[in-house]
Design a protein around this nucleic acid. Structure first.
Length: 628
RNA sequence: GCCGGAGUAGCUCAGUUGGCAGAGCACUGGUUUUGUAAACCAGGUGGCGCGGGUUCGAGUCCCGCCUCCGGCUCCA
């Protein structure tokens, strides 16, 4: 048989040769360092036989940054973790332990409570294993044999995994520890040069909150100590970017016990909000939206009609008032549908695009709240577009174009996801088939890469979501585009068609920022607090050198009043005031003393670049970036 | 909501086996009049998250609750 190497040369091997055989045929050193086979983007265990004509790349311990090479290292590390835990905690039940982005985890059911204080002890045990050395042995077994084995070991989670497994079942053994595992794994533990347990958390078995909660231990591993150190340093840097920290430092907002999940916006944070709000209005005007305002609270009958009462009530704040119960709106859609019904519409008016950015309230689970990215008071840049059936695709196309135009401004690169029917869907499958197909076609015409979010849709329809990752690697949904046939029927929305008959429109729900709160949180991290000039709460700060320069500084403030400008007259040294301006990430600082005049201003840009500009030259420069 | 951790001054944190609540920054007053990332001196910083309990005595020990942090689940 022959295999094709990365340089396109061919290697002749005996039939049935494995990846390791191939590595040996090339050289003993390669065989020694080999960790994984990759062919056509797929990874394969070194112990498995190769196919005739197969493309072959052998990854080694030197591929320290290769995602697949790290993946196998961490996967094997997870097994070492399980072995250590088994030894230290007799009676522990083991569940699953996959590699994940930046590390790995293993889920356990401990016979006793375990806390983070126990991690060093477990880590020590892993180090002992590493010092002794471990080799992995692979074997294929029948389902019956696998079952018998795990029943004998009293491992109920493994038994369940065997019972639900499809395809051949394989075991990997290292030391006295054997685990059900598809692989691939390292040949031995030598490449694991750095390993660290990073945390511990509860996690439901199979991700279902109806199941038992297990204890998940997180860790990470690298091919060198330097890589681990660099990773830990990156985590520290990410923490410095965290919008919760920067929000306090930059005096943008704060959160308080008195209203969990509802930010207090400070003057500087409000500037950013208002800039985004102005941009929203301009964009909406340009794209044919009309602004509306609808009530915040509605009688429960409205929520019964919309379906929220049945599908969403546990997330709503309810207000009993005499005989009635009001619900504080978690979404704008019902209000917009009631508004649409206030008069007869002609097909000639469609699409009708109602936009509104009023605060919504969602009673999110206490443990789900997170800074600005997960709040209870949500302000979506919402709109509902009423369209005739034959306008749907064209309109979705426009919405997607709008979204891309807006995200380009911030140089955000979101990932698209098509979210399909959820378990608690309203409406029949035929309608969902139809809606999902339309969204898919639109994504294709835009040639957008997208993932499928199986069952992630809203109860009334499927959606296209855009996701952005925060500084800590958590992914957040931002923009959403939802296609809804359900609610317009429920609210009996109609328009008169060209055939002089009543028709029911479809409604496209869309939010482009997603919510102001989350968007500002993500932007803060995206820019590490150094907002572009048009968003900066303070755009220019003037620092008079001494008391004698205050008058001139104030005159400068007036001369440049079209910008957000202020004078720092504090009795502090120039150095001190510059330092403070830098910490506040103000884009322009003007130092004004004896040497300066309108013809020659000392300008310092954020980061420390200094230049001399005339007043008009400075005005021209800032004007370029102070507005969009 | 669930698992684990935490809550002390506006912020970041220290506080031994239960024995008079601390530091730096910020803030206030004074000195200084400042030239591109922290001038100097002095000073108040406080219901130790909330409510019970144990104790002669609780920031410290016990119970309940709230909030926050890391995850899980759920979502913009």
């Amino acid at each position: 048989m022959k295999v094709v190497l990365p340089d396109n040369s061919e290697l002749e091997l005996p039939d049935g040769s494995t990846g390791l055989d191939a590595a040996r045929a090339i050289g003993p050193k390669l065989a020694d360092q080999a960790v994984l086979v990759r062919s056509d983007g797929r990874v394969q265990d070194l112990r498995l036989p190769l196919q005739d004509g197969q493309q072959l790349q052998i990854l080694t311990t030197r591929d320290t940054e290769d995602a697949d090479a790290l993946w196998v290292l961490r996967h094997s590390s997870a097994h070492l973790l399980a072995e250590a835990v088994r030894r230290l905690y007799p009676g522990v039940k083991i569940a699953i332990g996959p590699p994940i982005e930046n590390g790995f985890y293993y889920d356990f059911e401990f016979p006793e409570a375990v806390s983070e204080e126990d991690l060093p002890r477990i880590e020590e045990e892993i180090r002992r294993e590493l010092a002794e050395g471990r080799e992995w042995r692979r074997e294929e077994v029948s389902a019956e044999e696998a079952r018998k084995r795990f029943e004998a070991e009293e491992e109920p989670y493994k038994v369940e995994l065997v019972d639900t497994a499809d395809g051949p079942i394989s075991f990997y053994t290292q030391g006295n520890f054997t685990d059900l595992c598809r692989g691939p794994h390292l040949q031995d533990s030598r490449p694991i040069k750095a390993i660290k347990l990073t945390g511990l958390a509860g996690a439901y078995w199979r991700g279902d909150e109806k199941n038992k909660q297990l204890t998940r231990i997180y860790g990470t591993a690298f091919y060198s100590q330097e890589d681990l150190d660099a990773y830990l340093e990156r985590i520290e840097e990410a923490k410095r970017r965290d919008h919760r920290r920067l929000g306090v430092q930059l005096d943008l907002f704060h959160l308080s016990d008195v209203s969990p999940g509802s930010p207090f916006w400070h003057p500087k944070g409000a500037v950013i909000w208002n800039q985004l709000e102005a941009l929203r209005r301009r964009m909406n005007e340009k794209h044919g939206y009309v602004e509306v305002r609808t009530p915040l609270i509605y009688d429960s009958s409205v929520w019964v009609t919309s379906g929220h009462w049945e599908k969403y009530r546990e997330n709503m704040f309810l207000i009993p008032e005499g005989e009635r119960t009001y619900g504080l709106k978690p979404m704008n859609c019902p209000g917009h549908m009631l508004l649409f019904n206030s008069r007869i519409h002609s097909y000639r008016e469609l699409p009708v695009r109602y936009a509104e950015a009023s605060p919504l309230h969602r009673n999110e689970l206490a443990g789900a709240l997170h800074g600005l990215t997960r709040v209870r008071q949500v302000t979506q840049d919402d709109a509902h577009i009423f369209v005739a059936e034959d306008q749907i695709e064209d309109e979705l196309d426009r919405v997607l174009a709008y979204v891309r135009e807006l995200y380009a401004i911030f140089e955000l690169e979101p990932r698209a996801e098509l979210s399909t029917r959820p378990d608690n869907k309203a409406g029949d499958d035929e309608l969902w088939d139809h809606s999902e197909a339309i969204l898919e076609r639109v994504l294709r015409t835009h040639e957008m890469q997208y993932a499928i979010g199986e069952g992630e849709g809203v109860f009334y329809g499927p959606k296209i979501d855009l996701h952005v990752t925060d500084s800590l690697g958590r992914s957040w949904q931002m923009a959403t585009i939802q296609l809804d046939y359900h609610q317009p029927r429920q609210f009996e929305n109609t328009f008169m068609g060209g055939d002089n008959r009543e028709h029911t429109p479809a409604v496209i729900h869309r939010a482009v920022y997603g919510s102001f709160e989350r968007f500002i949180g993500i932007l803060t991290e995206h820019y590490a607090g150094a907002f572009p000039v048009w968003l900066s709460p303070v755009q220019v700060r003037v620092i008079p050198v001494g008391e004698d320069h205050r008058v001139a500084a104030r005159r400068l403030e007036e001369a440049l009043a079209e910008f957000r400008i202020e004078v720092d007259e504090r009795d502090e040294t120039v150095s001190r005031r510059i330092r403070d301006a830098e910490l506040e990430k103000i884009p322009y600082v003007i130092v004004f003393g004896d040497k300066e005049s309108d013809e020659a201003l000392a300008v310092r840009k954020r980061g420390g670049v200094q230049s001399t500009l005339s007043l008009e030259g400075l005005r021209a420069e800032i004007s370029q970036v102070a507005t969009l």
